[in-house]
Amino acid sequence: MNVFRILGDLSHLLAILILLAKMWRSKSCAGISGKSQVLFALVFSTRYLDLFFVFISLYNLVMKVIYLLCSYITIYMIYGKLRKTYDRENDTFRLEFLLIPVIGLSFLENYDFIPTELLWTFSIYLEAVAILPQLFMISNTGEAETITTHYLFFLGLYRALYLANWIWRYHTEKFYDQIAIISGVVQTIFYCDFFYLYITKVLKGKKLSLP
C-alpha cells in the first residue's frame, strides 16, 4: 500500500459521498445520470464477488463493502426515493453500445477463462467507460451543477492517482497488471477534457457550461 493508492481510494470514496450528500441535501438527483450509476453498481458487484472467496485485508474488505453499499443507496435514491427529480429525458445514452463491446472484450482479453476472472475483467473494462452516460448527459444539457463537477473531479482524480500507484508498484515490487493499467489509462483520458474545464472554469468560481 503506497500513498498514491490510499489517496486514490479516498478520492474515490469522497466522490461517492459527495454525490450522496448532494442528493440527500437538495432532495434532488437532477443532472445525475442514473445509467452511469447503474453501471458503477454493476462494476462493484462483479468485481467484489471475491469477497466470498478470498480475504485480502480488513481495509480491502471494509472499503469494498462501503463502495457496494453506497452504490446501491445511490441507485435507490435515483430510481426510488428521488425518482420524480430524475432527468430521464437527458439520460439517453444507449447502454448496449457499452455493454456489448465490454462483454466481448472480456471474453477475448483476460488472464483466465473462468467465471470469477471473466467477471473481474468485465468490471475493469466496464469501469473505464461507465462515466460516459454522465458525460453524455452533460453535453446534452450543456451544463452541470458545481457539486456534480466536484463529484466528477474526484472520480477522475482517483483513476489518475491509481496510474501513479501502478508506476510506483512497478518500480518497487515489479508488479504490473496490464488489463487494469490499459483500462485505467483509457478511463483517465475520458476525464482530461473535463479536468481542463474544471480547472479553467469551476475553480475560478464559474458554473460549468459548454459553449
Partner: peptide
Amino acid sequence: QEPSKTHDEL
C-alpha cells in the same frame, strides 16, 4: 513476473 490473480486493488 506474471500479473497477480488475487486482485488486491479496489
